[in-house]
Amino acid sequence: DCQPVRNDPRNGSKRAVSGHLTVATAPLHSFSVLEPGGPGGCAARRLVTVEETARAAGCLVAQNGGFFHMSTGECLGNIVSNGDQVSSSGGLQNAQFGIRQDGTLVTGYLSEEEVLDTKNPFVQLVSGVVWLLRNGRVYINESEETECDKTQETGSFSKFVNVISARTALGHDREGRLVMFHVDGQTEQRGINLWEMAEFLRKQGVVNAINLDGGGSATFVVNGTLANYPSDHCLDDDMWRCPRRISTVVCVHEPRCNPPDCNGHGTCVQGICHCTGDFWQGADCSILDCGPSNCSLHGLCTETGCLCDAGWRGSNCSQECANGSFGVGCAQKCQCENGAACDPIHGTCACLPGFQGDTCAEVCSLGWYGPGCHHACKCESLCPCDPKTGSCNLTSTMHDILSRGTAFFKEFGGERTAWLCLTLALALLLLLSAAANVTFVLGSRTSRRRLDGEYAYQPLEEMNGELHSLEKEQGDPTCSIKD
């Protein structure tokens, strides 16, 4: 009766175990799967301690991650580390835990196509063995069905599930927080089995979790320092326990941006990129955005703002160049004359009717009319038409001929039609002039007849201050002039 009750630690009775539960918010930015010793570790089949890998990556908390081949160092299962897939299971079905690019947490069994999805790819992914909790329910029996080939592996797999040992697990709670867990132990002597671990995690509010590598691999590191009691003995002195050199590591760190340098266009503060300037946008500062109108489709958005196409101006390229200027930045002056409109892009002139030439400085050639003088006159008399309207009205045409006489001779002196029209015009003027002269002469005679000959012609003559003899005779010379 004096002997105390002694429980067998392997029969499920209460016993003490030590371990750590780590909860990380915003796991998209604060959680990483690391290759052993840094990038390229899986390809190189490196095996290094968790401390070494965690220190280099600046992990606040780190644990051993996926399974690996102990003799070759090969990473086993699917491994995606910071967006790079560095190991593939080749479709072998084991429990997976990962985070997709949009922050989605994924737990369970994945097809190869899902692992390789490019629309929303995994940025972190690690493979374990046994899906411990599925949507808040212990899922170990179903996992054995999926992950164990019963014909050859039942004994080994069953022992793996039920033996007490050091364990590690990875999962998340209902709020989307990531949960890392480990307990110390020694296979068959200390620690917990997977049933106990699943139930413990469930009670902590974890809803999905997978089991990662345990036994002597179970290692917990805080700020680069070993913080648990590994179960492997040391080679030099088996009184001491030494951390095993393992493969991948799961790591919780200060929130980081993706990419860490925000593509060179921003500053990373607690996992959030604060983009520089007014125009870099997006979670990773990779998008140039010049506002809702985005340069009004008349320019290119650059990191200094809208670079407007030729003919456009303003902060969002919404204004055309003012009349009189054109080109990039509206920097060039238009040369258009005679009221012609100037194209704001190329500076070309749109002539008003009756004008032509690059700057619309020239009037239409005879026989042509309209804007830019592109239309040929269609007058029956072969006379030139109105250069503005194309009208064949002779009066207006004659008026135009007279007003532009010099140009007419220069440009069309040799043309038969032009000469014909000029001849007609001059003949008409001659007739009008002759008629006017005849009328004048006849009118003058009639007037003289009315004076009855009461006049005398007296030529004015002055010689050395003396009047002509006739003037002397008549007295006052001024009176002799009657007409």
Binding site: L92, Q152, F160, G215, D232
Partner: peptide
Amino acid sequence: LSTGVSLNDDLLLPYPGTRTRLPR
């Protein structure tokens, strides 16, 4: 005290050394 080398003696393996499972 320096980090010693592990004996790798606490092995906890889900599958036998030669894996026979096939991809699905």
